[in-house]
Lab assay of single mutants.
Amino acid sequence: MAAAAAAGAGPEMVRGQVFDVGPRYTNLSYIGEGAYGMVCSAYDNVNKVRVAIKKISPFEHQTYCQRTLREIKILLRFRHENIIGINDIIRAPTIEQMKDVYIVQDLMETDLYKLLKTQHLSNDHICYFLYQILRGLKYIHSANVLHRDLKPSNLLLNTTCDLKICDFGLARVADPDHDHTGFLTEYVATRWYRAPEIMLNSKGYTKSIDIWSVGCILAEMLSNRPIFPGKHYLDQLNHILGILGSPSQEDLNCIINLKARNYLLSLPHKNKVPWNRLFPNADSKALDLLDKMLTFNPHKRIEVEQALAHPYLEQYYDPSDEPIAEAPFKFDMELDDLPKEKLKELIFEETARFQPGYRS
């Protein structure tokens, strides 16, 4: 834990890192770190609560700039109880001085990944967590956004079992017609939660990839272990087919990539493993919904509104309290091709509203 900075004593240090967030945020305490930044909790002297502050230093890398800009653009436009918001952003007053960006968010005690390492969940908890994931996802999908990296560590939890989806750095506007060349190379989302079509096709992607990830998360809540822990690309596919069985001819016809289709045709026939054999203690309604989410063919996979209306979630289902976005989200430009200098300018502009004396 960093010592509390005395008023006016300059930035606090946390594990050798400068955290320049005073005077409003003090009493910093280390939480963890990701690929390009550290997260601390801090005391907000204005709202009198502890908050989470993520320090991001992305400006050396085009990919990190892209992810940072995506996350900020999306989260500043989203407003939903099951999606983490941005409360404040701290950065230098000029673009030349801006080396880091500090993002202030609600402090959540833990995440689903940490929880599943230590606790076996009751059916009631599984049901409530799944409902909140789908409630947040309904809003995301209504904005025409794909999260693309749903996994237990991106689901934040607090002691009252509130759940918030975080990390929109890989999110995209849904565009089933656009052929994202190089899709697989830039697709760094965790393999275990990846839909089979991501490994088999490169053309376009749809909201059904997020539903697949939610199915993987439900299976993990039922058993405290990942359902498809593939060691590499082909191993991942083999794990999936080992449980779902061989795809039907109709399902194979959806695979545009001939090499991928021929690979699947070359494999020995596998039978589907019954879900109640894998999860003998699970609620039968939970397994019915799991089956509809972990469907090989993305066109037959359940959609988020149908999933919310499934009998497993009937005690929570309330369409009048499951809000959607006001308007579909649009990125003005494809960020993939922009140089990091341009992305830095866009991050600077996007964060201006939090600067003292800002006038829109």
Rank of each mutant, 00 (worst) to 15 (best):
G245L: 09
F19Y: 15
D111R: 03
D20E: 15
T185I: 12
F331Q: 02
E326T: 02
G230R: 08
M333Q: 10
D336V: 14
Q236Y: 04
K151S: 02
V14G: 15
E349M: 01
I324P: 02
T351K: 01
I84Q: 09
L184I: 06
S360T: 12
R353C: 09
Y102K: 10
E12L: 10
E81I: 03
K164P: 00
I126E: 10
D235C: 10
K231D: 03
I53H: 12
R225N: 08
Y317Q: 00
I255R: 04
N224A: 05
I126D: 05
R353P: 06
V188L: 10
L200D: 05
H120Q: 14
E186K: 12
L222C: 10
H269Y: 12
D111L: 05
P58T: 15
A307F: 02
Y64S: 14
F354G: 10
A352D: 12
E303Y: 05
G32I: 10
E71Y: 03
T118N: 09
N82D: 01
N82M: 04
I243K: 06
L278V: 10
Q132N: 06
I31P: 04
C65T: 08
R277G: 01
R277I: 15
N201E: 11
E326D: 15
H125C: 08
E197H: 05
V101T: 09
R77C: 01
P11A: 12
V214S: 11
D106E: 15
S57D: 04
P226C: 05
F59K: 14
I324C: 03
L112K: 12
P23E: 00
L156M: 12
E71Q: 12
N276V: 08
H125D: 11
I72M: 10
Y102E: 03
R15V: 05
R50F: 09
L121W: 02
G34F: 03
A4W: 02
Y131F: 14
T118V: 06
W192D: 02
E350W: 00
I165E: 07
G136R: 12
F331K: 01
M333A: 04
F348E: 08
L241K: 07
Q17P: 02
G357R: 11
S213C: 15
F183D: 05
Q119W: 05
E349N: 03
N154V: 05
Y102L: 04
I347E: 10
D337Q: 04
Y25H: 07
P176F: 09
Q315K: 13
K73I: 14
K330R: 12
L222M: 13
A3N: 05
Q132Y: 04
N154W: 06
Q119L: 14
W212H: 10
Q66P: 12
S266L: 08
W192S: 12
A189K: 08
E334C: 02
N27T: 09
G8L: 08
L237A: 11
K259Y: 10
N144E: 03
T190S: 15
I31F: 14
L107Y: 11
N201C: 01
L308G: 11
H178T: 08
T68Y: 15
K259G: 08
Y317I: 06
G10Q: 06
A143V: 13
I211Q: 06
G10L: 10
L200H: 06
F331I: 15
E334Y: 12
S246Y: 01
S248W: 12
T110M: 06
M333R: 02
C161N: 04
D235K: 07
L155C: 10
R67S: 14
Y36E: 14
L200W: 13
T206A: 05
L244I: 08
S122G: 12
V214M: 12
Y316W: 03
T351V: 01
D336N: 13
R225H: 12
L222N: 04
V39T: 06
P23Y: 00
T206Y: 10
A9L: 07
Y317C: 11
D149K: 04
D288P: 01
G357N: 05
I209E: 09
L294K: 04
K344P: 10
T160I: 11
L163G: 00
V14Y: 09
Q132I: 10
S29L: 00
T63Y: 13
Y25M: 03
E186M: 03
R359Y: 02
P319I: 03
R194G: 13
D177I: 06
V188W: 12
H125F: 03
H178G: 10
R70H: 12
V188I: 13
C65I: 15
E303R: 10
L107Q: 14
Y64V: 15
N257K: 14
H120M: 14
E303Q: 01
A9E: 12
S29M: 05
E345Q: 10
K292V: 03
A352S: 13
I83S: 00
F296A: 03
L234Y: 12
F19P: 03
H269L: 15
R353D: 01
Y64T: 14
D177T: 07
R353F: 07
P152N: 08
K54H: 00
G85T: 05
D124C: 09
H232K: 02
E60G: 00
F348L: 13
E12W: 01
I211Y: 12
R261W: 12
P311R: 00
I126Y: 01
L346T: 10
A325D: 05
L264Q: 14
S41E: 05
L313S: 03
N297V: 08
Y139S: 11
E60M: 14
I255N: 14
N238C: 12
Q249K: 15
Y139C: 05
D210A: 13
R261Y: 03
D162K: 04
G215M: 06
N123D: 02
N123M: 04
T63S: 15
K292H: 03
H120C: 03
N45A: 13
I74G: 09
P356A: 03
K73H: 07
P176L: 11
L115S: 02
D20F: 08
D283W: 02
I165R: 01
F78D: 05
G204F: 01
H232G: 00
D235I: 02
G169M: 09
L155H: 01
L265T: 09
Y263A: 05
E350K: 14
S284Y: 10
S266C: 15
Q249I: 05
F19G: 02
T94C: 06
N123W: 03
S41T: 13
D321N: 13
T190R: 09
D318H: 11
G85H: 09
P23I: 01
C216D: 06
R67C: 07
I165C: 05
M38F: 13
V21L: 13
M13P: 09
H299I: 07
G37C: 15
Y36H: 15
L157H: 04
L264C: 01
R50M: 15
R261G: 11
E305Q: 00
Q105P: 04
H299F: 03
A219T: 13
Y263T: 12
S57N: 09
L335Q: 15
T295H: 06
L218K: 10
L76Q: 14
E71A: 15
C216Y: 12
Y43D: 13
L343H: 09
H125P: 00
I240Q: 07
Y187I: 03
L115K: 00
R172V: 06
I31E: 02
V14A: 12
C216L: 08
A92F: 00
A189H: 05
F329N: 10
I240Y: 09
F183E: 06
L170T: 04
V46Q: 12
M293V: 00
K344C: 00
V145E: 15
G10K: 03
A3S: 13
A9M: 04
L244K: 05
L155S: 04
P323Q: 06
M108K: 15
L267H: 02
N281Y: 15
D179N: 13
E81Y: 05
F183N: 11
L116H: 07
E322T: 00
I256P: 02
Y233I: 11
R79Q: 05
I90E: 04
L112N: 01
K272T: 06
W275V: 05
E345P: 04
K344L: 07
A352Y: 03
R67M: 14
A2K: 00
P356G: 06
V173Y: 01
K48E: 13
Y139N: 14
D179G: 10
R148L: 14
Y193I: 12
L150R: 00
P311M: 00
K344N: 14
D337G: 00
E303I: 01
Y64W: 13
I243H: 09
L112M: 15
S41K: 06
V145K: 01
N281Q: 11
M293G: 04
A286V: 10
A282V: 06
I211L: 05
N27Y: 15
Q306K: 12
G169R: 07
E60F: 11
K231N: 14
Y131L: 12
Y128R: 05
S57T: 14
V39E: 15
E303S: 03
L343K: 06
N158E: 09
I86G: 01
V173L: 12
K285R: 11
S122P: 05
N271S: 01
S320V: 05
D318I: 10
G10I: 11
F183T: 06
K203S: 10
L157P: 11
A189L: 10
Y113K: 13
L184S: 11
L313R: 00
A52F: 07
D179A: 14
P323L: 10
K73G: 05
A9H: 05
A171M: 04
N154Q: 08
T94M: 15
